[in-house]
């Protein structure tokens, strides 16, 4: 499976944020999306998730050489600030999700197995989500986004505000999930990107480009990335 973006463009009035995004993502890899503030990472995600309409271009999934439209359920989008329906308990939210998506989930597990998988403690499972801590809300959001096993998983700065233990759990989880899907992960933390991602992709001048690691060591690789990003003149 490949995820192909062709000539995607988006402008806000005079400002051309996405100029000509032309890129092919491969199955089974985690892509680290780096870019300066204001480079358009969130805009790109919003376009892919169809929260905003792109001005031009197309994107589609290619399976066994056949291209097809990306449907809403193909994409999981994890936001940096976790949002969960406050009036439900964790268990109710999960049950609701499974109720309406049950048919499309391969070998579904029991609710408690899912909670165990995310290490959400038994005593928290029947609490209203409004009383969940930030980290737990984040786990809940991640859980809902991965149960349906979307083909594409978009993560916008997902680990930045988590404590070190939860962040480590999430990293492990993402690594274990990468088979069979495309994970695109935007972050400002270079070490995290280098640690977790298989490919580093830069969004600069409204275009996407891979930074080849070739035979550089980590330090040299970092310097190469920074040098590439510095060309961009965003503040």
């Amino acid at each position: 499976m490949r995820f192909i973006i062709e000539h995607l463009s988006k402008r806000f009035e005079q400002k051309e944020v996405l100029k000509d995004i032309d890129f092919t993502f491969q199955e089974g890899k985690i892509y680290g999306l780096l870019g300066r503030n204001g480079a358009g990472k969130t805009t790109l995600f919003n376009c892919l998730n169809r929260d905003i309409k792109a001005d031009g271009g197309a994107f589609f999934l290619e399976e066994n050489g056949v291209g097809r439209e990306v449907a809403a359920e193909d994409i999981g989008y994890v936001l940096s600030t976790p949002t969960v329906p406050e009036f439900l308990t964790g268990r109710e939210f999960l049950k609701f999700f499974l109720d309406i998506n049950g048919s499309s989930i391969e070998n579904p597990k029991s609710l408690d197995e899912y909670f165990d998988m995310m290490s959400i403690m038994p005593e928290d499972r029947d609490k209203l989500l409004k009383d969940y801590s930030h980290g737990m809300k984040n786990k809940m959001q991640m859980l809902i986004n991965i149960i349906a096993q979307p083909k594409i998983l978009l993560l916008d700065e997902p680990l930045t505000s988590l404590d070190v233990v939860v962040a480590e759990e999430m990293k492990q989880l993402l690594r274990s999930l990468k088979e069979g899907r495309i994970t695109i992960f935007s972050t400002h933390i270079m070490d995290l990107a280098l640690d977790l991602c298989d490919e580093i992709v830069l969004l600069s001048h409204g275009e996407l480009e891979v930074v080849e690691k070739s035979n550089l060591d980590n330090q040299e690789f970092k310097e190469k990335i920074i040098a590439a990003l510095k060309e961009e003149t965003y503040a």
Partner: peptide
């Protein structure tokens, strides 16, 4: 209390 969060999930927007 409801759509604000659920609209961030793509399944909800089908």
């Amino acid at each position: 209390n409801c759509d604000h969060s659920l609209l961030t999930y793509s399944f909800y927007k089908q």
